[in-house]
Design a protein around this nucleic acid. Structure first.
Lengths: 91, 91, 91, 91
DNA sequence: GTGGTCTAGACCACA
DNA sequence: GTGGTCTAGACCACG
């Protein structure tokens, strides 16, 4: 698993969660995060970007809803296996 | 000893331990588990419901506190003998 | 709030949670922790004693059952307000 | 970590724990198990040799006393780091 | 950023 | 071979 810690701009006009969401989404689409691989834990993301829990969870939540990520309680958050379900629900 | 393996819903809004607690409680109250009979071991409950030991122990713990179960180290967990103690502690 | 970080002995015959429970209990009874004051967070206690969350929670759980502590989700764990409830439940 | 599952003879005149102890000792001395490496868990050893918990623990206990193994609660049992302590205590 | 729940293990103490 | 304790994490629900 690779995870680039690109920058988040705290003064940017874009919400923190939105920037983080874009970063994660990018890494999935670029293939740096592969299906069924774990992404960094919520706590790690908080520390990596020095942001609080709220934007981290909002970013992940939306990516889960969009079908790009899958959470497993007590285990972690993973890149979704297939993009089928994603496009299915997006209709 | 009979023990029905009703279903636990992993996506339910109710915690796993709470669902398991309700199942055990139910079987005691329906008389499927009788006083002084053993319930399945913690490891068996883990396997039966495909859950981890933590929710199993929490379910049992609470039923012990409520006076419905009694643990015996090295021997097992049993349905409490009388309901007297139970109602006694309930005020 | 004062909290003395007395020692926990990892090789002691007493379980870690039991030692921690005694430490907290002591400080309440000595008045170093006063009613409605918060005790250190679970994660702080983990760090202070270099132990895992399990014994920390077990120590606190038992003190809650004994009426010495009160938890507030999202806020913290506090010394119980009165000792009345405590002795009440003790019979 | 390598661990050869040599045979244990259940009908042998030697106690099970003694045979297991010899097997583990052998693998440490042959260097198949290296310092600070974990040995198989107690449960795994039970399953590997189809023996009960008692001989497994007795074998490990004695190797701990002899300074060849070191236990870490909740983590595992490891080959001792140095043989110094071992010979030290053996005097 | 707390407490609440859970995973997936391990060793320990008691029959 | 049970229940008891512990490790080292994770995500969840609530401020």
């Amino acid at each position: 698993m690779e995870f680039d810690i690109k920058e988040i701009e705290k003064d940017a006009p874009l919400p923190l969660y939105y920037q983080l969401k874009a970063i994660i989404k990018n890494q999935i689409e670029e293939g740096k995060l592969k299906p069924d691989e774990p992404i960094p834990s919520e706590r790690d993301l908080m520390d990596m970007y020095n942001i609080s829990r709220t934007p981290v969870r909002q970013a992940i939540n939306e990516l889960v809803v969009e079908g790009l990520l899958r959470r497993e309680h007590g285990k972690g958050t993973f890149v979704a296996s297939k993009k089928i379900s994603q496009s299915f629900w997006r209709i």
